[in-house]
Amino acid sequence: MLIDEVKSYCEELLSSQSCKEMSFHNLEHTHDVVANIKTIGESMGLSATFLEPIIIAGWFHDTGFLQSYKEHEKYSALFAYQFLSARDWPLEKIKIVTTCIQSTHMPQAPCSLEAEILCDADIFHLGTSKFIGRNQLLRKEWEEKLQEQYCEESWLRLNIQFLSQQHFFTHYGKTILAQGKCKNINFLKSKLVQITKSASLKINANFA
């Protein structure tokens, strides 16, 4: 099956040393995204035929990190196009795959149901209990790959703003994941309150 070939090829790419060094955008994340696509698809009663190009896009969507961090979607789509066209896959299906991949660029802008499913699958963790752990991995990755460092308060404010502005596109995302995301926002806000109170107490103590 084509999906099996895609899976093997992308797992090989994502097992390269440069991708192994990624704290967040690694093979584990890609496995999660593919599983998330299936979860969302099953909740909508979509057929395996409909989901096939989305799952393929899910396997390829982060392979472009091999070439570029900030423009990885462009290269991921290119890798997918080269692989699929070499196997004479229909161009209209290849277009679905590449469009889905490019739609995951932040801020997400999906223009089809297929792209909406991949976009929600890619940020699925925002609405689950995995968010806190995955968020710390992303912070570490930004420090290592982008040399962007944040104090705890700045990091919390950045993520509260991002989660508050971000929205899901599928029904599953707007219901199930949105509820989980609200819980995560509240958790971040409570941590921020604790930090700001602690900082205020220290300042007052210095002037006492």
Rank of each mutant, 00 (worst) to 15 (best):
C151V: 14
I3L: 14
Q102D: 10
I123Y: 09
K74E: 01
G41H: 05
V33F: 01
Q17I: 13
P110H: 02
Q149E: 12
C100R: 10
R139M: 06
D88F: 14
S18N: 08
E42D: 15
E42C: 10
E42A: 14
L192F: 11
P53N: 01
P107W: 04
C182E: 12
R87V: 15
I195A: 01
I96A: 06
P110S: 02
I160R: 05
Q149Y: 14
R134E: 12
K145A: 06
F168R: 10
G58H: 01
L156K: 05
Q166F: 15
D88C: 14
K95D: 07
S15T: 00
E73W: 00
H105V: 07
L51E: 07
K20R: 13
F168A: 13
G41R: 04
E148L: 15
D88I: 11
K140H: 07
S47K: 03
L46W: 08
G127C: 08
A48C: 02
L156H: 03
E143V: 11
C119S: 11
K189C: 08
R134Y: 12
L138M: 05
S15C: 05
M44Y: 07
P107H: 12
S154F: 04
Y172L: 10
H31R: 14
L14T: 00
R87P: 14
K93F: 11
L118K: 05
Q149V: 09
C100Y: 07
F60H: 00
E92M: 14
F169A: 04
Q149L: 09
T49S: 10
I117W: 01
S16Y: 05
Q136P: 07
R134L: 09
D122W: 04
W59Q: 04
E11A: 13
K197A: 08
Y75C: 09
E52V: 06
Q147I: 01
Y9A: 06
L158T: 03
L2C: 06
Q108F: 10
C182Y: 12
L66G: 07
G58A: 02
Q179G: 06
L177E: 04
H31N: 13
C19P: 02
L201H: 10
L84D: 02
S164H: 11
D4Y: 07
G173T: 08
E152V: 14
Q102F: 10
K20Q: 15
D122L: 02
K145F: 09
E141G: 12
P107D: 04
L2I: 13
M106A: 15
Q161G: 03
K145E: 05
R157V: 00
T39G: 01
E73V: 05
H125K: 09
L46E: 00
W155Y: 13
A57N: 00
D62R: 09
K197Y: 10
A48T: 06
S68P: 02
N206W: 15
F50T: 03
W142P: 00
F207K: 13
I132S: 06
L51T: 06
C182I: 12
L84Y: 09
S154G: 08
Q67E: 02
T99V: 11
D120T: 01
G41A: 06
L177A: 03
L156F: 07
A199Y: 08
W59H: 13
H72E: 03
T49P: 09
K130P: 05
K70P: 00
T170A: 02
Q147H: 15
E116S: 12
I94E: 00
S85N: 08
T39D: 03
E92P: 13
E73Y: 02
